[in-house]
């Protein structure tokens, strides 16, 4: 009884979002067989992505200064955090459809912030299996790699996971903001959103200088997994990416969110309505 009293006491500001999310979760699970196929496919996506990395290590033992167990740490961190971000805000890439069909105007009728509504309008539970593949890789990598655990290591791991999820989520948000200008240009932003995921799983030491600039600093994908992994493994970084940068992931996350919110604001200011 006290529990109901407490939940009732939570400000009604969040009640709407909670109700929408709960209904979305229920609706996905109600078509059981379709949900199971979705879960299986999404797990398979994670496995195939892992296989693509493993295949290269099937040919060579060290790539970009890392061996397979060390790359597994980079892959696990990157793929788990990306999948969680994808689960929570990945549906923001349906925004171009809403804009083209004019259905976005419906969001304007509700007395809630547009971005929050869009973010909480869905949650893709099927991505859970893919996040699971990432988590499994991460746990295996943490166990078999030679890591000299200390409080700092644990703190860095937690910090990295939180910041990496924030960085990947922000990628979806800025991409959504730009759609107000591009209308049909999702492919352009996909280059950075999905290209960014691919980049985050790679050892950045193999990148050329332009790639290091683009995915090391503009969209700080290397900071989401590779550099923190180097720090955890106590390995030196490549030129331009010393491993102490691992502690700068919060800066990267703040930068990405700042960029994302500015892009979103530009987009919304530009939007004139669907004419309905």
């Amino acid at each position: 009884m006290t529990l109901t009293a407490e939940t009732d006491a939570i400000p009604t500001r969040f009640a709407g979002y909670r109700a929408v999310l709960a209904s979305r979760m229920r609706s996905q699970r109600s078509y059981r067989s379709n949900f199971v196929i979705d879960l299986a496919s999404s797990g398979l996506v994670g496995l195939i992505e892992l296989a693509e990395v493993w295949l290269l290590f099937h040919q060579v033992t060290v790539l970009g200064g890392l061996n397979f167990t060390q790359v597994l740490l980079v892959f696990g961190l990157a793929d788990m955090c990306y999948s969680i971000a994808d689960m929570v805000v990945g549906h923001c890439d349906t925004l171009p459809k809403y804009i083209r069909e004019g259905t976005l105007d419906v969001f304007y009728l509700r007395p809630q912030p547009l971005l929050l509504q869009l973010m909480t309008s869905d949650i893709s539970l099927r991505r859970l299996t893919r996040a699971g593949i990432g988590l499994t890789s991460l746990v295996i990598a943490l166990c078999i790699n030679d890591i000299h655990w200390s409080v700092a290591h644990v703190a860095l791991l937690v910090l990295t996971i939180v910041c990496a999820i924030a960085i990947f989520s922000a990628m979806y948000i800025w991409a959504a903001g730009v759609q107000f200008f591009l209308i049909q240009g999702a492919e352009f932003t996909n280059a950075f959103v999905y290209g960014g995921r691919y980049a985050a799983t790679q050892p950045a030491a193999v990148w050329s200088l332009p790639l290091k600039g683009l995915f090391g600093f503009v969209f700080p994908m290397a900071l989401a997994a590779y550099v923190p992994a180097l720090r955890l493994l106590d390995l030196p970084g490549p030129a331009g990416m010393p491993n102490w940068l691992a502690w700068c992931t919060p800066v990267a996350a703040v930068w990405m969110w700042g960029f994302a919110l500015i892009m979103w604001r530009f987009g919304v200011r530009h939007y004139q309505g669907g004419g309905g």
Partner: peptide, 13 residues
């Protein structure tokens, strides 16, 4: 643009 970005990442690896 997408082709290029993925292309250069594939080149690197």
């Amino acid at each position: 643009v997408a082709n290029m970005t993925f292309g250069f990442l594939k080149v690197a690896m």
